[in-house]
Amino acid sequence: MAMSAGQEDGQPMMEMNTTPLIDVMLVLLIMLIVTIPAQTHAVKVDLPQNIGQPNPPPIEPQKNKITIEPDGRVYWNGSEIDLVTLRQYLDQSVQISPEPELHFQPNPDARYERVDEVLAVIKRSSVTKLGFVGNEQYRNDF
């Protein structure tokens, strides 16, 4: 017998109706999902502000280039390196006066996770001259 409308002798039904309870729980669950803020992840990089120097610096600083390939390999001026070596190179370049420019150019197919790791290493090394190179390749994507 799937459902009973009560016993024949007039006694009340002893089974609890769970349908309203389930409805209330679903409404509460939906309200909870709607009110939870979306999780966002960002790496904050302090980019230099354009001050508008009237004269270029007298000495042209050395330019270092970091590239990231789609398979996750990181290159420093064309040589493959790991993140520990990258940090060492960045710490050495910060000590040079004037500080060399750092050009950052990830491949469009590189994984965001790897790009994020490299940007975090750059931020921790206190590099002040950082440029994102090759952004013009994305101008038609949006």
Rank of each mutant, 00 (worst) to 15 (best):
V127H: 00
K65F: 01
I22Q: 07
A2W: 01
D91P: 02
L29E: 05
R114S: 12
V27S: 02
E136N: 04
T35S: 00
I22H: 07
V115H: 02
D109K: 10
R111K: 15
V27E: 12
L119I: 10
M25F: 11
R139E: 06
I36V: 05
Y89M: 15
G131D: 12
L47H: 02
P70K: 11
R114G: 02
M14V: 03
P54Q: 13
L21Q: 05
V118G: 00
V133P: 00
H41G: 13
K123P: 01
Y75H: 13
A110Y: 05
V84A: 13
N50R: 09
S79E: 12
V121E: 08
I30Y: 00
P61V: 14
D109F: 03
V74P: 02
D9M: 13
P58I: 03
A42V: 12
P108N: 14
S97V: 07
T85E: 13
V133G: 01
M25V: 15
G134I: 11
D91C: 01
Q95Y: 09
E136F: 06
G10R: 03
Q95H: 04
D141H: 06
A38M: 06
Y89V: 10
A120N: 04
Q105L: 15
T128E: 09
A42K: 10
V127F: 00
M25Y: 05
D23F: 08
F104A: 03
I30P: 00
G10S: 03
K129D: 09
T19E: 13
Q137T: 05
M31W: 00
